[in-house]
C-alpha cells in the first residue's frame, strides 16, 4: 500500500525548543489515520509543515508520493483538503459565497459546491451568512471547503473541537465514511482518544514532538492487553492457591485480577484453579482503552 503522507526526519525548532523531533510519519492510502497527542505535543505544527504553512527546520515531506518543494507545493495541495485548528470563513458572506471563493481559488468547478454542501448537510443553510452559523455548522462548512475538488487527502486538525456530543457524532460519521465514499485518505488529529478509537484504522501517537507509536490501531490494542479477570465461586481458595504458587493478584469481591498473560498460561491457570475447587465461573480480559494506552505511552511506560 502506498503512503499518501510520508515524512523523513521532520524537525521544527523554535529557539532551543524542539516542537517536532525527527518525525517519520507514514500514512497509508485509503485509511483514517489518527494523530494523537496531548496539547502542545506538536500535532498542529506537524500538520502545518505538511501543508507548507510553516517551514521545517530539517527533514522532508512527501505528499502523494512526491517530495514537496516550493515549485510543486500548490499542485500537490490542490489534491489535498485541510482544516487546521478552526474553520476559515468570512462572516459577512453566506456559506455558498464562502465556498465559491474557495472553489475559485482552488480552480474547482462551482457545480462541486452543491455536492459538498449535501455531504455536510448544509444545503438548506447555504444562503445564510456565516456569522449566523453555529460552531458545528462552521466546522461542517470547513469540511465542505476541504472536500471541494474531491481531494485525495484530507488533513483535519481537531475538527471536533468545541462541538457538542451530537456534533461530534455527526462529524465522526462524516469523516469515517470518507475513504469508502470519496476514496479519500484522512489524517485527523485529536486529543479525544475515545473518539479516535471509533474512527481510525491507523494511529500515530505523538508526545513532546516525538512519535511514540505508529501502526494499525488493532496492533496497538493487541500489544496492549489489559488485566485478566477471574470470577470464582470460592475466591478465598483461589487466592490461597495463587499465594502458594507465587502468582501476584488482587481480589475485587468475587473476582481475582491478574496482570496480563499469554493465553497458554491463562488456560493452565484456569485448569489448576478448577482442580483446586475454586469454582471458575468466568474468565475475561480487560482491554485497555486507547486512553489508557496513550497515558502509559506518554508517561514513558512501555506498552505491555
Amino acid at each position: 500500500m502506498q503512503n499518501v503522507i510520508e515524512t523523513q526526519g521532520l524537525c521544527k525548532t523554535y529557539g532551543n525548543h524542539f516542537a517536532v523531533q525527527q518525525l517519520d510519519l507514514a500514512v497509508p492510502e485509503g485509511c483514517v489515520y489518527g494523530f494523537i497527542g496531548p496539547n502542545g505535543a506538536g500535532k498542529s505544527t506537524t500538520m502545518k509543515m505538511l501543508l507548507g504553512l510553516i517551514a521545517p527546520s530539517a527533514g522532508k515531506v512527501l505528499l502523494l508520493g512526491k517530495e514537496m518543494n516550493p515549485r510543486n507545493r500548490l499542485a500537490l495541495l490542490r489534491q489535498t483538503g485541510s482544516l487546521i485548528e478552526s474553520p476559515s470563513g468570512y462572516g459577512h458572506l453566506t456559506g455558498q459565497e464562502n465556498l465559491e471563493i474557495v472553489a475559485g481559488l482552488k480552480g474547482v468547478d462551482h457545480r462541486e459546491i452543491d455536492r459538498v454542501l449535501e455531504v455536510v448537510h448544509l444545503t438548506d443553510a447555504r444562503h445564510r451568512k456565516l456569522r449566523q452559523y453555529s460552531l458545528g455548522m462552521r466546522q461542517r462548512l470547513g469540511i465542505a471547503q476541504a472536500l471541494l475538488g474531491s481531494p485525495k487527502l484530507l488533513i483535519l486538525d481537531e475538527p471536533t473541537n468545541g462541538l457538542d456530543p451530537a456534533g461530534i457524532q455527526e462529524m465522526r460519521s462524516l469523516i469515517g465514511e470518507m475513504p469508502a465514499r470519496c476514496g479519500t485518505t484522512v489524517l485527523i488529529s485529536s486529543h479525544l482518544l475515545g473518539e479516535m478509537e471509533q474512527l481510525v484504522q491507523q494511529v500515530g501517537i505523538l508526545n513532546q514532538g516525538k512519535l511514540l507509536f505508529q501502526g494499525p490501531l488493532a496492533q496497538l490494542q493487541q500489544h496492549s492487553r489489559g488485566d485478566v479477570l477471574l470470577r470464582l465461586l470460592y475466591p478465598q481458595r483461589g487466592l490461597q492457591w495463587m499465594a502458594d504458587n507465587g502468582i501476584r493478584c488482587r481480589r475485587e469481591n468475587d473476582t481475582l485480577v491478574l496482570p496480563p498473560m499469554e493465553e497458554d498460561a491463562l488456560a493452565q491457570l484456569v485448569q489448576a484453579l478448577a482442580a483446586r475447587g475454586a469454582g471458575v465461573v468466568g474468565v475475561a480480559t480487560r482491554t485497555r482503552s486507547l486512553e489508557e494506552i496513550f497515558l502509559r505511552l506518554t508517561e514513558g511506560k512501555e506498552v505491555a
Partner: peptide, 17 residues
C-alpha cells in the same frame, strides 16, 4: 482584518501562492 477575523490565511495559503 477580514482575513484575521475569518482565520483565512491558513486556508488561502494552501490554495494560492
Amino acid at each position: 482584518d477580514v482575513e484575521v477575523r475569518g482565520s483565512a490565511c491558513k486556508l488561502l495559503y494552501t490554495l494560492q501562492s
